[in-house]
Amino acid sequence: MSDSAIKSGGASAPLGTSTDIDLSEVRDWIALLKPRVMSLVVFTGLVGLLVAPGHLHPVLAATAILCIAVAAGAAGAINMWYDRDIDAVMRRTAGRPIPAGRIRASSALAFGVLLSLASVMLMGLATNWVAAAVLAGSIGFYVFIYTMWLKRRTPQNIVIGGAAGAFPPMIGWAAVTGQVSLEAMVMFAIVFFWTPPHFWALSLFAHGDYQRAGVPMLPVVAGPKETRRQIWLYSLLLAPLALLPTVIGMAGLAYGAAALVLGGFFLESMWRVKRDAQDAEGRSLTNDAPARAAFRFSIIYLFVLFAALAADRLVFGA
């Protein structure tokens, strides 16, 4: 595929492999929903729902979580439709249902749009329309701001685009309270500032894929040395930011202690990335072992941090 086809955007690429035979299996349609990404989205949404003051009927709470999961999956399906040209040239994504020719691009788009509309309507009917509006905003942000606008244009794509992944705890909170308050924004900010070190750690050892696809990820555009510096700067912002729930009285000292310890480990992990043995141009001499470890730890960090927030509220009643 030519560079011009990639730079002009996925929507101008052909609508996938056209065939009369439907080659798709159920697991291909599930794969369109990016289930691995969904787990973190669902978990942070659930924590937002659990820590919010007030009560939501368990059936409605479960429906809200289902809506968050389906909306995240729907946005992922639309993202796969738009990015089918770059997915085809990236080793990591070439086996996805659209580039592999098992699902037609137009079918994936219809699937994504239908699920987006259904999840927003269901959220509004089951909980409230503030939560539904924030859910719709998160889908729109991921599809229009991140996928269609930023991803192919700026190395800061995941900094601003990362906001899309930060919405779920805010949606969970809004589902219970019917509003977006300071506490919801704090949870949003934690995920927002966690995203750059998390994704840039991944892009440090997967930049070959992004380079082939013409995606201007930071290591491709500014080099690995600058990427490590930015990872470190965002980590320095995240560690104290994660203490905010205790500072504003949203969580107690148990959460604060957990955030402090986790923040220490997070900084240590990212410091190893910054100090990785490298050549004059910043290329890792260790096959990016610290970045791989930091990427894995960053996922654990967010899971445990949000689990601590929920435990603090549920166990200690902060």
Partner: peptide, 13 residues
Amino acid sequence: GLFFFIAMARLTR
């Protein structure tokens, strides 16, 4: 099933 249970939950709320 979901719509049934949502309706029941909203009615009993």
